[in-house]
Design a protein around this nucleic acid. Sequence first.
DNA 1: TCCATGTTTCAATGATATTTGAATTATCTA
DNA 2: TAGATAATTCAAATATCATTGAAACATGGA
Lengths: 112, 112
Amino acid sequence: METKAVVTALAALAQDSRLAIFRALVQAGPAGLAAGRISELTGIPPSSLSFHLKELSHAGMVTSQQAGRFVIYTANFSTMNALLGFLTDNCCGGNPCSPVCTPACATEKEST
Amino acid sequence: METKAVVTALAALAQDSRLAIFRALVQAGPAGLAAGRISELTGIPPSSLSFHLKELSHAGMVTSQQAGRFVIYTANFSTMNALLGFLTDNCCGGNPCSPVCTPACATEKEST
DNA sequence: TCCATGTTTCAATGATATTTGAATTATCTA
DNA sequence: TAGATAATTCAAATATCATTGAAACATGGA
């Protein structure tokens, strides 16, 4: 994952409304949620919601698919995991650092 | 970890300069780096650097300690791990979701 | 105390993000 | 086709953030 993409992804999540939206989608799982349902759950008005969904989508954090009149949004779990990996990547210069970064996912890294 | 703190932490990382600073500190490990050294490594001028270090510090992503004339900055690994946990927390409504969020650290979660 | 070095604060400027009502587009049903 | 529902785009006001030179502050050594 490129630095630029990481900054975009982090920026997408670093905002109250968008973090709420994303968490709702993470909790909804692979089935996703229709835009209107997200609006109900979060209290964000449709036009604001649409703006934020666009941001999240552009950052690769969510995907969408048309389903009749509805647009179903789904969290993009692989991007999220790439993001998590990036932050711990090359931790401690690649040396063994058990006390430092093991708690979460020190064994799963990526440099793509 | 509270939502507000998470947004602050993500916002702290969602910026080119700060992400570069943070990564340098992650790679430096527990020994940390002096402010001047970070400036050298990243090419960020002292006054800008100081601004960004303050942001990171305020977000709990780094800690600092005076060492003579130097100020040593260190990545705060526990905050980082709490952050990673938050993002995957309650994934898929807490149901087993092996295909979805296992890749990185699905086994290590927290709701603090 | 005086000087050199490392770091932070200040202040002014420019750039970027957020918000939302109203209008628009798209789809379904009858 | 007409009416209802779902979602997006537009535009303009508001708010927030990033940058950096110059000045100030703190520490160590002579």
